[in-house]
Design a protein around this nucleic acid. Structure first.
Lengths: 353, 353
DNA sequence: CTGTTAGCGCGTTCAC
DNA sequence: GTGAACGCGCTAACAG
């Protein structure tokens, strides 16, 4: 058994090849000039004893770890799963490994994760900030001289590169569409939590992308009555979303005639609630959800969705980071990728149409 | 700007606190005994200059990297996404970081990924082997003395720990159920590819879990006619699955009356194909799919699924690995977690019932 | 308790 | 071309 044996190092290879450590290191590391004969001998010796370079030691002297840290809220969320997949593809093509961390959308866990990644001396980071109101830890990354790209959301007042969707615009667009169709009571459902359990101020929303969307939502409805637009918070998970929607729908004539779900999990909850309550979509209730999830295409009727280009967002974030690493350019370009609205039939005319 | 400044090291802290490097290292590293006064002084100095331990250097001397390598086929696949999430939660709770790699179900990429991870001196690995027929690279992991746990699938003839679902049994169970309901022509759809494009031998199936399932499928139908059971290969992605299913369904009276999908993406393709062809589920076609995906619950009718305990599988794999690392025990226990069949109404009686 | 010294595996000067 | 020697940041022996 080779169980507890120390892995072969350059010295071992050198000894076996009958050359100095430095010479062996040169051919093994692929730098400097070595005669063909010795080159062959060293290579052979390395192969025989199964030498494999210790990347940690290499990183120590070079200063580069060839590793990128990625921090997302929840890798089990299809949006992030696809995005991370895209990122790692682009990064691996450039020779980078990926250290993945989940924040569970908790600021404390996010800070801890970033701390760990900085300790591991990653060459760059891609982070989806859980709370745009606190950015001291993001600033710490920059102060460490580590390139950073924000993903999906951006912290406030921070000159850092980022790639996001056009959340505000597309939310406004969808809302306007609903208003145009005659809806005068529209509810936006988000998983974000507030202290009071109700929504009263945009400042209470920590998730950058969601705040943008709600801003667009509210802006679009500015000409309407105060009671027209409603934001429902705390819809974490399909079950919770469903029960919240059930409550709202129970208001009868006072209930909203259109709903927007901030992600597909919530959308599923709303859809289920409507079906359970016997409320017809789109005749009695219009439904739109963010993210083009599987189920939206086969639901009855098909669900109109705001399709987020998760793959492209991920690729773009990875590319921005690589560029920043390679050029050393501390550019803070903010890249916005447009969402696409896919109409499937879950939006009908409202009472004023 | 602190751009290119070398990050503070133990020496820097020591100098600032007016103590020796070793003493500073002791309080910074949290080992050995130091007087309260000096402890405070060092901590203060560290905080002032923003010291952060270099985990790479630490790993070099300790031999441990506190990092686990995870290699899965496709992180965008919900099954793996959930599993990886569960793994990283368990691992992080024990102080381990996660280096994630995608193999894209390619043996070559899997080998490359494992090579990289070994180079980075991970303390352990969790791998979903892309091809159970080739295991030399997995053996290389063991030879390096790195604890390994196989996930979801197991390579042939390898004494390595692993956690899988009870694929063969549950596949047999579902098949028997279909036969009992009167079905005499059943098709199993998998994304696996064969050279010929057709299925002829179990040996052609490289994905361990799928081979197990097909084995169970074929065993269950042993008493029937030779033409009763059919395996359709190459159903990669929903679109391809749909077109393959459309072809099969076009055989009219010769078409299968029941279909089993090897994953939920394929299931979606089969479902869509049936609807497009105007074939009623479950009256004219019964459908069962692996993985309890979102859409299966809201389809019409609801789809009967084989629910894989992705979260538990992931947690268990992580725990097995941790145990192996901590005890140094090279145990090769093989843990099997049972799947659960959730009946939703997509299975009806066949012609012989 | 504290300071000194010696490595870990590698890249990189310098001489030869 | 090649080899000897040093340093990266840290832990771990060993002395005092």
């Amino acid at each position: 058994m080779a169980e507890s044996m120390r892995p072969p190092s350059v010295s071992d290879v050198a000894r076996r090849a009958g050359v100095s450590k430095a010479t062996a290191a040169r051919v093994l590391g692929g730098y400097g000039r070595v005669s063909a004969a010795i080159h062959a001998a060293v290579s052979a010796a390395a192969a025989e004893i199964g030498y494999r370079p210790n990347e940690l030691a290499r990183s120590m002297t070079t200063g580069r770890s060839d590793t990128i840290g990625i921090v997302v809220g929840d890798i089990a969320n299809p949006f992030f799963a696809v995005a991370v997949h895209a990122m790692s593809q682009v990064l691996r093509a450039e020779g980078f490994g990926v250290l993945l961390a989940n924040s569970a959308e908790s600021l404390a866990e996010e800070k801890a994760a970033i701390d760990t990644l900085l300790g591991r001396r990653v060459d760059g980071m891609i982070v989806s900030p859980a709370d745009m109101r606190e950015s001291s830890h993001l600033r710490a990354i920059m102060d460490s001289g580590v390139p950073l790209v924000q993903f999906d959301r951006c912290a406030a007042g921070l000159a850092v590169a980022g790639v996001t969707a056009d959340d505000r615009d597309v939310a406004a667009e969808v809302t306007q569409m609903l208003i145009r169709r005659g809806h005068r009571r529209i509810a936006y459902f988000t998983a974000c939590e507030t202290d009071s359990g109700r929504f009263s101020d945009l400042e209470e929303i920590g998730t950058g992308s969601v705040r943008e969307r709600i801003a667009g939502f509210l802006t679009a409805g500015e000409g309407l009555e105060d009671t027209a637009l409603e934001v429902v918070v705390g819809a974490v998970g399909a079950e919770r979303a469903q029960s919240l929607a059930t409550e709202v729908l129970a208001r009868g004539a006072e209930a909203p005639t259109a709903m927007i779900a901030s992600d597909s999990t919530i959308g599923l909850g709303l859809y289920t609630a409507a079906r359970a309550a016997g409320i017809a979509i789109p005749q009695a209730l219009s439904l739109v959800t963010f993210h083009d999830a599987d189920w939206t295409a086969i639901a009855h009727p098909g669900i109109t969705v705001i399709s987020q280009p998760a793959r492209r967002l991920g690729e773009e974030a990875a590319r921005m980071l690589i560029r920043q690493i390679q050029t050393g350019d501390g550019t803070c370009a903010h890249h916005v990728v447009p969402c696409r609205i896919i109409s499937r039939g879950s939006v009908g005319d409202g009472p004023v149409s």
